[in-house]
Design a binder for these strands. Structure first.
Lengths: 182, 182
DNA sequence: TACCACTATGAACGGTCGTTCAAATAAAGA
DNA sequence: TCTTTATTTGAACGACCGTTCATAGTGGTA
């Protein structure tokens, strides 16, 4: 998983995987069928980790907006820690996976949709207590946040991009979720 | 360029390029030095095209906000036309290019920064006439728009993602640029 | 027409890719 | 302890990778 995360699918070879797992080709193929199998399993592992993290960050009893902020704070923090700038394996996969292999794209997409759904219920909650704007449906706001996450993942790779994601997050969350008085 | 755009750098082979250009290896190498040279040239060609398009879409005498809207309308329209879902070559490159080849990442990043700068001056103009919010610096708002563009490029690859980018764009532009009355 | 500088051609190279499989080793059952 | 069943091993395969280069061909000049 780490290898695919760092180098992407195409730049990771079976030899790399063999060295990293200390499994010889035969064992690797017995366990995973083929290279795509290893990748699929890696996506699964990553997705389960993401799920756990999302549950922990978006859970709790704080106000919905605070929990969302906590999530994005963690994202910004993580981006700065990410010295290899590997970004998010699922986002990378969505971009790298060719259009002619839709099942991989779907797998990455579904894992991300879980996050989106989690955002949506949280936003709906905030809309009910008035702490989040109700001009637009919760689903739309959730999708906009997801787009923001994806965008940050790319922006982090821009020259000096990391220097600005903090303010981008603030602008995005405030602009998208804050109650509007017009 | 089309090949790299559709398949990415790693999945495009010199054989593919030879067939597409109808240039034999020797000629290809004489003209471009090597595969990376072809790619660099492709990035350049793409960037010049983007530049032209940005100039045309963001130019004119309409209100700044309308010109920005025109740009995003075009982006949404283009995404729906993009049957192969190739997205943006520069964004794809930013994600696919490994961290250990920074000059390619930089080339893609600089081309995108041109768009960002264009946004920034336009936003500053809108801030002066009050049609765009002034709570945050134009540079920050421009970066947030860029993040939105990048995010849409990814979101388009989500399952049914294309069905929602219209509303995402509206939410993003409105939330980011509209004057705030608090 | 004869020469020359230049370009195009495509076979060939060493290397790496994903994958297979017969043989060696280990584990389990009798 | 001996036989049987799993698992591990790593050499080997054909295909394709990016790249090179001797050779053939072309267009311009004298």
């Amino acid at each position: 998983m780490d290898l695919f995360w760092s180098r992407g699918y195409n730049r990771t070879s079976m030899r790399d995987l063999k060295d990293a797992t200390r499994l010889n080709p035969g064992s690797l193929y017995a366990a995973f069928e083929n290279k795509q199998g290893v990748f699929t399993e890696s996506l699964g592992l990553y997705s389960r980790g993401l799920r756990r993290e999302v549950e922990s960050l978006l859970g709790g009893n704080d106000a919905p907006l605070d929990r969302i902020r906590r999530f994005f704070d963690n994202l910004v923090e993580g981006s700065h820690q990410d010295k290899e700038s590997r970004g998010c394996l699922l986002v990378n996969t969505l971009i790298e996976a060719p259009a002619d292999e839709p099942e991989i794209r779907a797998q990455a997409g579904e894992a991300l949709q879980y996050v989106e759904r989690r955002f949506e219920t949280l936003i709906a909650e905030g809309q009910r207590d008035g702490s989040i704007q109700s001009q637009r449906p919760a689903a739309t706001l959730a999708r906009t946040l997801m787009t923001g996450i994806f965008g940050m993942r790319v922006y982090s790779r821009m020259p000096d991009g990391l220097d600005h994601i903090r303010e981008i997050v603030n602008t995005l969350i405030d602009g998208t979720l804050a109650p509007r008085t017009n």
